[in-house]
Amino acid sequence: MIKYYNRKKEKYEIENIAGEKILRWTYESPVGKTFLELFIKRKVVSKLYGMYCNSKLSRKKINGFISEFNIDMSRFKNKENEYKSFNEFFYRGIEEEKLIFSKDKDIFISPADSKLLALNISSKKNTINIKGFDYSIEDLLGDGKLAKEYEGGLSLIFRLCPTDYHRFHFIDDGVCLKTKKIKGKYYSVNPIALEKVDKVFIENKREYSVFKSDNFKEIVYIEVGATCVGSIIQTYNENSKICKGEEKGYFKFGGSTVILLVKKDVITIDEDIKNQSEKGIETSVNIGERIGTIKKMHH
């Protein structure tokens, strides 16, 4: 059972996990763990499943998925029968007018529909602690110089479930630099897996880019691939003007994660998210929703 905080209803809820039985078997049983190490974390498994999800055959999964997870299709551009494959449905786009966010320059918005954990980056070791594992920012980025700029800052971890909208957006006006790709494995990013596999985010395939935000200094956007995520697709234009709310990219099938690194003393996270994160509990947030505000400096 994965408990998360629903801030709109101000109560805890239990997440409905796609493929929970298989996940538990894979990450918790001896036979499953052997399979995981031999096959599941490898690219070929994600690739084969990706091929199936891109095929017409996979269309028949769509309706069952929508009803099982109670997905509200009214926000999306296409009706359920208009998708050519499960993957096409998976990275479905939202209608422009349904993408609502505050234009206020001081408001920091969520880049995705997801479960959010806001963690302080330790200024001594430059690490974040997830599920009892210390993750070094340098290992995450593979760049010590860049990592150093985020000491004592914030890491915002947005976990996208298979049932979520799978596109991610920019949280401010600005300019985004070129994407750097880091090769890796394909472990699940579900909390069930995070408790069993040491350092999932550093092991997994990921990409990052520096976003020169107009109001929140330089933010590092990291996209982490996971089991069955064939790929991370970047759709933004490098080095050109970007508006708040604009799409940055999307994930193909699977659960995935977007991590934002924010410099020290730039934003104040909303109290409810901060309190839950301190207990190690994620908060569900929607794309464009306010999650914090700019930190006002007192002179």
Rank of each mutant, 00 (worst) to 15 (best):
K3A: 07
K3S: 11
K3T: 14
Y5P: 03
K9F: 01
E10H: 02
E10V: 07
E10P: 06
K11T: 15
Y12C: 01
Y12S: 06
E13L: 02
I14V: 11
E15Y: 01
E15K: 09
I17T: 15
I17Q: 12
G19Q: 08
K21M: 10
I22A: 13
R24W: 05
W25P: 10
T26R: 10
Y27S: 00
Y27G: 04
P30H: 04
G32Q: 09
K33H: 03
T34S: 10
T34L: 15
F39K: 11
K41C: 14
K43Y: 08
V45Q: 09
S46Q: 10
G50H: 03
M51N: 13
C53Y: 07
C53P: 01
N54P: 00
S55H: 00
S58R: 06
K61N: 12
I62A: 00
N63C: 08
N63K: 12
N63R: 10
S67H: 11
E68R: 14
E68L: 10
F69E: 12
N70P: 05
N70G: 13
I71D: 02
D72I: 07
R75Y: 07
R75Q: 13
F76C: 02
K79W: 04
Y83G: 00
K84Q: 13
F86C: 01
E88N: 03
F89E: 06
F90P: 04
Y91P: 08
Y91R: 07
R92D: 02
G93I: 08
E95A: 14
E96M: 06
E96G: 07
E97S: 15
I100Q: 15
I100V: 15
F101K: 12
D104S: 08
D104F: 01
D104Y: 00
D106M: 00
I109R: 05
I109F: 00
S110K: 02
S114N: 09
K115M: 09
L116E: 00
L117C: 02
I121P: 04
I121S: 07
S122H: 06
S122C: 13
S122I: 07
K125G: 12
I130G: 01
G132E: 09
G132T: 05
S136A: 03
D139K: 00
G142P: 04
G144W: 02
